[in-house]
Nucleic acid binder design. Structure first.
Lengths: 341, 341
DNA sequence: GTAGCTCGTTAAACCGGTTTAATCATTGCT
DNA sequence: AGCAATGATTAAACCGGTTTAACGAGCTAC
């Protein structure tokens, strides 16, 4: 492919002039501009993005680091989050580099990514990558609360604790006391926050959230989210006799509902179900329609993108953003009336 | 951040030596290697990816171009496809650059992307981008058949025509003659191929596929895939009186099922439904479980990725790959018995 | 007519790596 | 000891752009 020198030579001008015709940083006379452009077209010249990035020290690319396991699909939450990131970035001319490469322990194999900023999804506890990005001077925003919280890290998160408290409150208010919580995987900070919130709701009423009633999703045990919901409800209902189920996602809720149907339980008459949802379209289509909590995952992604782009322009910008969830009451929960039926 | 010259100077060696310590292209003595590495660590040096890309003329990045509209989410099909691309790329050390930027008409604003190859999702008719990538010498693979098919373009696609034929055959075999086809958007080549295939199945039996029974999804008319299914079935059932529905996706099928329930129809007794599906987990959870066609979208993405990486290494590799679909019979279709009930 | 401006253009340095060709230090062989 | 062969290291050119500082031409001002 033709490069800037070819164009300059053929148009009888210097490299710098060609550069300015394309970048418009300095004005170039109309005759010269026209000549350069026509030569460029003839030669099929397009500026080389990599060379330009090297010179201006900007790539206009945001890195999105997320785990992606061999046997697992992206969850609805992740998809919505990514969608938010992409939409927000593309509005300001940024592109998104998806990176799911496993961490390489061989430092010599590791090179600084060609990105202006990074969004890191679901950081682990004491995540070493955080320090690495700081060292490289690359703006970093986490999606999900860091653990431990060093205080000088930008992140966005849901109000998980409060949300779980409200959900618990909602169900306890309706007279449910025996509630199954199909929680997220235990290595995620969200799962701890949510368990805490629910636990508080119980304590506020002088009750105790019993640990048998809190199950954690495990990639080992459960093939998929819906299988998780199905298997746990199918295998525990007889012994635990709960009257309500809080499901981590709508997929989990779907599995739980199928198990309930097979047990001959009516929803919501015999069993209330609420999903910490992420897919409004799906919740609308079940019978009964699913009461759920809107996590605003797309907004979560959008806020993360906004934040990282802000940090790119103002290198000591730093902030945390909590995206509030919304309880959406549909038809799958009902007051617990007692031991009749 | 420290650069290679800083490291070279402090370690008392030349740039080239530092470069070789990191890239391992030429052997460097153990004492020197050790000294360079420790200096690099002290200085917090990581090789600059952009500079390296410029020098070696490779970025190890695959571009994934897809449309993403303001008000629309990614469909399950797209998500699975992307997942396939990512997994395949990351196995060979490539990263994926998601690009949803609108096409810029101002040529001076357009620059060659920092990618070694491109996967282009859902090309339009006579897509100008195809010629542009050829001009820039960037390997290109389409997902979805190009229109017109110039013959020298690599692409992957489902066997859409054949698949629709088989689905039609399956339903006609069971005695259905009046079949509603909730097809994809009319500007997609898949929708034409599928309509053709279904039409052939009818003709093979001396029947004609009537155009009233083929509906196309429209972003204007329908808020979401499930709304599409719901609205069309709710508004046409009384007049069209079909006994089977072919839904473009499982979401569409979900909406159609809800409409059927509200019309008092039993599935599959009164109405058979089959989804040209993309979400196996979802189809399992409905009652009745949804008979559907597995599109292998993840494999579609993986094949596209394989192909483009092959073209990067062998610039005149070129091929087309058809990924076969699989009809998965579950519970939502039943033979049409006649006008009883 | 010359000093002072602005405007357009250019040559050269720079961004941070890789690679080639040459140099230097060892070792092996006769 | 003499010479070839081998291996490690380096200086310099290169990848394809941007940017700085300098410069020449064309104006106005006095």
């Amino acid at each position: 492919m033709a490069n800037i020198d070819d164009v300059a030579k053929m148009a009888g001008v210097s490299k710098g002039t060609v550069s300015n015709v394309f970048s418009k940083k300095r004005p170039i006379g109309p005759k010269v501009t026209e000549r350069v452009l026509s030569v460029a077209k003839e030669l099929g010249y397009y500026p080389n993005h990599v060379a330009r990035s090297l010179a201006i020290k900007k790539t206009m690319i945001i890195g999105l680091k997320m785990p992606l396991f061999k046997k697992r699909e992206m969850s609805g939450l992740e998809v919505q989050m990514i969608t938010g990131v992409i939409k927000e970035c593309s509005m300001l001319g940024y592109r998104v580099l998806l990176d799911t490469l496993p961490e390489h322990d061989d430092v010599t194999q590791f090179s600084a990514d060609p990105v202006d900023g990074v969004i890191l999804l679901n950081p682990r506890e004491n995540d070493v990558r955080i320090e690495r990005f700081r060292q490289m001077g690359i703006p970093l925003v986490l999606v999900g609360r860091p653990e431990p919280n060093l205080g000088d890290i930008s992140y966005v998160d849901n109000n998980n604790t409060e949300m779980a408290f409200q959900v618990g409150d909602y169900l306890l208010n309706m007279g449910h006391q025996s509630i199954l919580f199909l929680n997220a995987s235990s290595d995620m900070t969200v799962s701890k926050d949510r368990e805490n919130g629910l636990s508080q709701a119980f304590r506020q009423r002088g009750l105790e959230l019993q640990s048998d009633y809190v199950i954690n999703y495990s990639r080992m045990l459960h093939a998929s989210a819906s299988e998780y919901g199905y298997m746990v409800v199918a295998s525990t209902y007889k012994s635990l006799k709960y009257t309500a189920v809080i499901a981590d996602t709508d997929r989990v809720a779907l599995g739980a509902m199928r198990a309930a149907r097979e047990l001959g339980l009516e929803i919501p008459e015999d069993l209330s179900i609420i999903a910490l949802s992420n897919d409004a379209a799906l919740a609308q289509e079940t019978t009964p329609r699913l009461t759920s909590v809107e996590l605003e995952a797309e907004q979560l992604g959008a806020e993360a993108a906004k934040l990282v782009m802000q940090m790119i322009n103002d290198s000591n910008a730093l902030s945390q953003k909590i995206v509030n969830t919304r309880l959406i009451v549909r038809e799958s929960c009902r007051a617990y009336i007692g031991a009749e039926r």
